[in-house]
Amino acid sequence: MQNLVHEVMDQRLLELLDAWREAFYPSESIDDPKHRFARFLDHLLVIGIDGVKSRYLHYGHNFTERFGTDLTGKVIDLLPTEILPAERRGMLAFEYTYARRVQRPLWRSYTAEFGDGQTETWQRLVLPAGKGRLVVGAFATATPPPHGGPELLTDGVALLRFLIERVPVVIDSRGDILELALSLESFSDTQQQMAELEEWATLDALTGVANLRHFHHLAGLELDHAYRMGRSISVLILDIDHFKKINDSWGHAVGDEALKAFAGACRKALREPDILGRIGGEEFAVALPNTRIDEAQMIAERLRRQVEQVSLPLSQGGVVQFTVSIGVATSMRVRASRAERPDIRSLLAIADGALYRSKSEGRNRISVAQDSEAKSG
């Protein structure tokens, strides 16, 4: 089987695999991947994984030329869909997390049509590097995998090419096939691993708070509970004031740190049952269970003051400070029929209208939706 892999795998990836084996063992860690794999740098990605966040630490020149942008320093989960389509994002997340979990090379090929309409087949090798890092080599290959069905699978080479186009293959350092990454069963064989998978699906990769989909789910459950129990529930929409200026003045890396610091300030101001989520670039939302309008205003004011105290040091000296504008809406002991009750999206839309008023009136302030009580009964 090793000879078969060596016949199918791109020669440049075979050379990278040999270099990785020499560097990775016996310590199972590579201190400086860019230095150790210097001759492959143009075709190499170095990825750092911190909790649920994956970031490109190095983005090879070949990829910059092929995809039109340098993604060094970018968080993979936050890339816009025009750069990384959803289907490829899911594929990459699975491959990177799987290779990190099993600490073995993961090999596959994929054929896709790129922006210029050209169809290309690439082979990828995902390699663990220790310390929460991965090294990925990828090359466009002139030999596409066979298509059309079993009649084309006349030998082992054709079969293996057919296979790696459809299923990532786990190999050892010598190039022997160990297993196929067919399912998440081996990947998620402990409760801890299942929890990590859930984080990938539900948390914002940068700030660690609920992502948009998960926030809507959790807040919707709380709203339904409030209706059943005849209790109030409030929501806040938060928007960091002049956030674009932070990115424009100090760069996106500082902008990322500002978002993380903002989320930390929100956590300090909120209560344990409150639900915090990131619903846009610099826009966040909070669901406040069993909270009346006056209580929601008090929490919003505490949060606004907490954000004012954030002071983010810059490496070149000085600090970054910012403020937040907030919109508040409340649904109070709804008596309307189920069909007439606002859902969580409707309630957030009401709060968003109040946020717009806060921004138009000078920012760094709180506005309460004037129709909040009327909308809710």
Results as ranks from 00 to 15, higher is better:
4 L>R: 10
321 Q>W: 11
235 V>D: 01
147 H>D: 05
256 D>F: 05
105 P>W: 05
376 S>I: 09
27 S>H: 13
176 D>L: 07
61 H>E: 15
158 A>M: 07
349 A>H: 10
3 N>C: 04
15 E>G: 11
298 M>C: 04
351 A>R: 04
346 S>R: 12
353 G>T: 08
367 S>W: 11
341 R>F: 04
134 L>A: 14
365 R>N: 09
175 G>E: 01
84 L>H: 01
278 R>A: 02
200 W>P: 00
167 V>W: 03
62 N>G: 12
160 L>H: 03
364 N>D: 03
187 F>A: 06
220 G>W: 02
132 G>F: 09
303 L>E: 06
149 G>H: 04
77 D>Y: 15
126 V>R: 07
218 L>I: 09
23 A>E: 09
19 A>K: 11
370 Q>G: 11
134 L>V: 14
22 E>V: 00
144 P>N: 05
50 D>V: 05
256 D>N: 14
298 M>T: 09
366 I>L: 13
36 R>Q: 15
18 D>M: 02
92 L>G: 03
42 D>V: 04
334 V>R: 08
273 P>S: 08
280 G>S: 09
269 A>Y: 10
207 T>E: 03
54 S>N: 00
172 D>P: 04
60 G>K: 02
43 H>N: 14
66 R>H: 15
239 D>A: 06
206 L>H: 02
106 L>Y: 07
135 V>C: 11
321 Q>H: 14
346 S>F: 05
248 D>C: 09
308 E>S: 12
120 E>N: 06
304 R>H: 03
298 M>K: 13
59 Y>F: 13
275 I>P: 06
179 E>L: 10
50 D>Y: 03
119 T>I: 13
79 L>M: 05
174 R>M: 13
241 D>R: 05
242 H>Q: 13
360 S>Q: 00
349 A>D: 06
47 I>T: 04
205 A>D: 03
261 A>R: 08
209 V>Q: 02
188 S>K: 07
236 L>N: 03
293 I>W: 05
357 R>A: 00
314 L>M: 15
296 A>M: 04
